[in-house]
Design a binder for these strands. Structure first.
Length: 426
RNA sequence: GCGAAUGUGGUGAAGAGGUUUAACACAACCGGCUGUGAACCGGUCACGCGUGGGUUCGAUUCCCAUCAUUCGCCCCA
């Protein structure tokens, strides 16, 4: 048997239903905020991620699926979608229209990592980018949108972690300070950190090697190096979040792994015990120079990416799935002679716009009821010889287990009425 | 990339170098029973114990390798 590629998975059944509901919620809320969908390629030039996502990031340094195509071009399966959307904005000169541009997207991303709980090598994301204007309102708006979508889905007790990476000025100052701090100790630090020292000393703070961790504790804090402007901007964003009653915690350790982030950054985690192992459900932030870095005009942006598998898992674990995937009607023919008419009845119900099915052949009544149960049928319609002669059908309500006889000619009316009642209850 | 655990039917699994025809249970399917999902009774359901080698008279059981899955680290969605 051919096994699936490590870290990939097939999505069906409950997980598929959960992912669909999650995605629809995000799409619906995003469109309330004026976002339109954009579809960008799965495959991009490797250069886009090297420059855009950032060559000092772990994602680019060691997690990309990069290969040469038959024309000798270096291509990469996107490890994230923001760079691609930014590229699309340049390619199509979308920035010549009204700003900000607001696009949401969904699709899979690829990262060569060891799979574990809530982590795949091909995973699915929903995300959005707001590009071309730079205000605290827009930064805050993406968080408001994200929490609104998650709230709509029924999540409670989310943990919103926020931080500010500062503007360019702040980061440069901080970078220098870190270099000065670590330089004398460089000899004794781990190999990774030596590399980080050169590329992005900020990352040393994340190092999990114990000795380095001790050292990092004494390192200067980014918050001390925020420029006046950066600091004010951060607090502007926070005050908007306060006004919209979004609970957040400031986490100075929140750095974000992609190089383009600057200023306001955030992650949202589920606070349930099961959620802890899933990592961030959603993460994002503000970026100033991404567009410029990949060869476009200097346009700022803000956005987030949400992990659909992770959110779907948390959604399922929290019992939030609504699921209306079940059939409306399951038709049971009694005996071979009734099968043809049952088949016709099913067709009739389908053309009324209701989901209907029947067994593949006349099966025993007990088995038929089991099938109806598994198919999640709302009603079981029983069609036997007696009914056929009378032009009627027995309709059993699967919730109340009550049963009544209905004339086939009244079926449309009957179903419309009953379904309407269900709508009202929901 | 590093570390750990685990691989026996659709599922949960027992077993231990040779009476194991791979137990038991659940699910499924068939029948007892064509007219209402239960219960009960009977029956069916692994030519094989992840894969490849090795040890052995003999290996699902021991050894090695390999692959896969899961979890932790790193990183993140």
């Amino acid at each position: 048997m051919i096994s699936p590629v490590k870290g990939t998975h097939d999505i069906y059944g409950l997980e598929e239903e959960a992912m669909k509901e999650v995605e629809e919620a995000f799409e619906g809320i995003a469109s309330l905020f004026g976002y339109r969908r954009i579809i960008v390629p799965t495959l991009e030039s490797t250069e886009l991620f090297d420059r855009g996502t950032g060559e000092s990031s772990d994602v680019v340094r060691k997690e990309m699926y990069t290969f040469e195509d038959k024309g000798g071009r270096s291509l990469t399966l996107r490890p994230e979608l923001t760079a691609g959307v930014a590229r699309a904005v340049l390619t199509n000169k979308l920035y010549t229209g009204d700003l900000p541009l607001k696009y949401y997207y969904d699709g899979s991303a690829f990262r060569y990592e060891r799979p574990q709980a809530g982590r795949y090598r091909e995973f699915h994301t929903f995300g959005l980018e707001c590009i071309g204007e730079d205000t605290a309102y827009l930064d805050a708006e993406t968080v408001i949108l994200a929490t609104m979508a998650l709230g709509y889905l029924g999540f409670k007790d989310l943990r919103v972690k926020v931080n500010s990476l500062g503007d360019k000025e702040s980061r440069l100052a901080y970078r220098e300070a870190l270099k000065n701090y670590f330089a004398p100790h460089l000899e004794n630090m781990c190999e990774d950190c030596k590399e980080r020292f050169k590329l992005n000393p900020l990352r040393i703070l994340d190092c999990k090697v114990e000795a380095d961790q001790e050292l990092a504790k004494g390192a200067p804090r980014l918050s001390q190096f925020l420029s006046k402007d950066a600091e004010r901007r951060f607090y502007d964003v926070l005050s908007i979040l306060n006004a919209y009653e979004i609970d957040y915690e400031i986490d100075e350790g929140l750095v974000r792994g992609l190089d383009y982030y600057s200023g306001f950054v955030y992650e949202i985690h589920a606070s349930s015990p099961k959620g802890a192992a899933l990592g961030a459900l959603l993460g994002g932030g503000h970026y100033d120079s991404l567009l410029e870095t990949i060869g476009g005009p200097s346009l700022p942006g803000v956005g987030f990416g949400a992990g659909l598998e992770r959110i779907a898992k948390a959604y399922l674990d929290s019992g939030l799935l609504h699921s209306n995937a079940g059939l409306d009607c399951y038709v049971v023919p009694l005996g071979e002679e009734s099968y043809e008419d049952a088949f016709g009845l099913v067709s009739q119900i389908r053309s009324l716009g209701y989901k209907a099915d029947l067994p593949p052949r006349a099966v025993k009544l007990t088995a038929a009821f089991k099938r109806a149960e598994r198919a999640g049928a709302r009603f079981v319609l029983i069609l036997g010889e007696n009914e056929r002669e009378a032009g009627k059908v027995q309709i059993k309500d699967q919730r109340t287990k009550s049963q009544e006889e209905v004339l086939i000619e009244d079926l449309a009316e009957y179903l419309d009425e009953r379904m309407m009642e269900d709508e009202d209850h929901a």
